[in-house]
Write a protein that binds this DNA or RNA. Structure first.
Lengths: 193, 193, 193, 193
DNA sequence: GATGAATGAGAGTTCATTCAT
DNA sequence: CATGAATGAACTCTCATTCAT
């Protein structure tokens, strides 16, 4: 399995660095190869094409969000708390890797239609986990039982996303994680029963 | 003034159509010219370069949102109602011009760093108007007086944006405008005093 | 006759100014029109095309050299003196109009093959007059009667031309006319009987 | 080093051929690539851009003149003889490669200001060598010790250049090398003590 | 005569991908 | 496995010239 070989991760990480530092449109395959310390052609031993690198970046990094979130889901706690941990985890991961935050919030959004569709496919898995929390909260009576779950999901994810993007566009100059409780409180107010 | 000549608008509208139908990266100047029914060179009598066309698309179309919003702001009504009209207007405009919705939600986000910064400048004017509503609501006691206004703005805009993008990515297959009241209600719950 | 109308000369002079100040490749027809204070289309009432403007610049300005030279030729004086007056006149004219010196020595030489051939046709008329001096000098015994007249012409014109070009490329920072006697003396030594 | 790879020279020579046969303004990169038998993109592995090709043509070919001239300078012989060999060598090189003579005398002079300045830099190295001969001759008493060395250089180079250009413009229809002794004799007469 | 808006052909350069070594 | 030299398609913008007014 290619994914288990060390060069696979090395190339993925090189891609994140190169995209963050040069921008999506200046992230040529040759630059990624150089950053990874391999020849251009070697990239194609591990990835089908350039798009495949980018999808893989997203897939690999997405587990940083989902692994923790799945642990949270398995615990016994109110949906509200689970939501809180989800937001905090999300903000934590991006605070810890600013290159990654630039890549996910700004650069990868410049990708073309096809790639964005594929990225959305990966993202959907994450949103499904969010839906689990929302459903739990509605069933337990914590959240408004009449709310439109898709709308709620869009509010939660849209608010988080917009908050992070604003933070990135302000050059990370304030503490994102500190905003988590406020974001949580406001969203909870909107969804509370 | 170039902007008052009919060809200026014709080219802008041609650009929206071409970008929506072909995608940002397949929207060559020659295609826009053909769609507009003018020669390639004519484009450059009205626009400095290709980026200038795209900025102008955004500026021109943004007035569809702001003109109405400014009327709303001048009336006497509760901030909650103003917010409701804002959301409805926003959804109305994009429902009425699906090409435009594709362009603003998907295609223009693929533009390069420079162009996105300029687009953000234009967008900021709109967000300032949203802030006016939020401040009014907080002063009148309708909205939570302790809420972080930037966070609230990010929730409102992030939710609207995510809602619209989801709708566009689902090929406009349901009625966006019908979602406005629900979106409004949920956001209001989150911000209410 | 177009050439007698005032706009004809106005356009010619505008062309010299524009070429000298912007360089050959930046001397667009529209710039020349603007400098001349006429519309782009008006240019084409007086000149067949852009090349025709440039040829005409050369033809018109060439008379500054030939008119005086023909006067000189008609006088009774040794060929050596005629040569001296020719060199002095040539240097005088270009010292008096530095724009023109830039145009003839540097800019017009960037023109394409066709145009250069036509310019050479005009120049040939001038070189014919030089040949007259050389022949006179050979017949009178002032100049070496065995010299190759074409070679002598190339030496005289080549030396003058190189001297002027060097002066232009040094930003006219010394007095060209003061060099004339030295140039004359040296050339005469080379050709003397 | 790129310059040592065979393709470097192949492209240079292809450029000379294409420029000579098509003219400077019709010498597209794609034509040069085709003539060289490589892909368009390959050109850019060896040269920064089109201007870099042209500079390199000049630099490489200039060594045809300077290498021999430097040998001549190192020998013990009268300055007059050195000058003679210089002229002969110059004429020899261009007689042997008529394409090159078209390129240096006609086509490359159409280049833009920047390129011409760079070419002048290369040319200056050659003129410095000519100055060495002139100084030697003046010190040994062979040449007029009062002559202005810059003027003498302009006469020598101007005469050679004009002679060659005339020959090229007459389609090389006579023997250039046979003119060398006459040119030398005439120039020597002009400079002799 | 004069205008100037409109035309449209034409070329340098980048970069993802391949494949012989 | 790894290399990296070579490939070649693709697109914005300029500007001389025209012609309806």
């Amino acid at each position: 399995m290619k994914k288990d070989k060390p060069k696979y991760r090395i190339i993925i990480d090189a891609a994140v660095t190169v995209i963050a530092e040069n921008g999506y449109h200046q992230a040529q395959v040759s630059k990624i190869a150089k950053q990874a310390g391999v020849a251009d052609g070697t990239i194609y031993l591990y990835f089908k094409n350039k798009e495949d690198i980018l999808i893989s970046v997203f897939e690999e990094k997405m587990s940083l969000f989902t692994d923790k979130l799945m642990e949270i889901l398995e615990t016994e706690m109110p949906a509200s708390d689970k939501l809180k941990f989800m937001i905090e985890n999300h903000f934590d991961v991006l605070s810890a890797d600013r290159h990654l935050s630039i890549v996910t919030q700004l650069e990868l959004r410049q990708s073309n239609h096809d790639l964005r569709m594929k990225i959305n496919g990966v993202l959907k898995e994450y949103l499904v986990l969010l839906d689990v929390i929302l459903k739990e909260g509605m069933e337990s009576g914590e959240f408004d039982q009449d709310m439109d779950i898709r709308l709620a999901r869009q509010m939660v994810f849209g608010t988080m996303d917009e908050t992070i993007t604003t933070w990135v566009m302000n050059d990370h100059k304030y503490d994102l994680v500190r905003l988590a409780p406020k974001v949580h409180r406001m969203l909870m107010k909107g969804m509370r029963a």
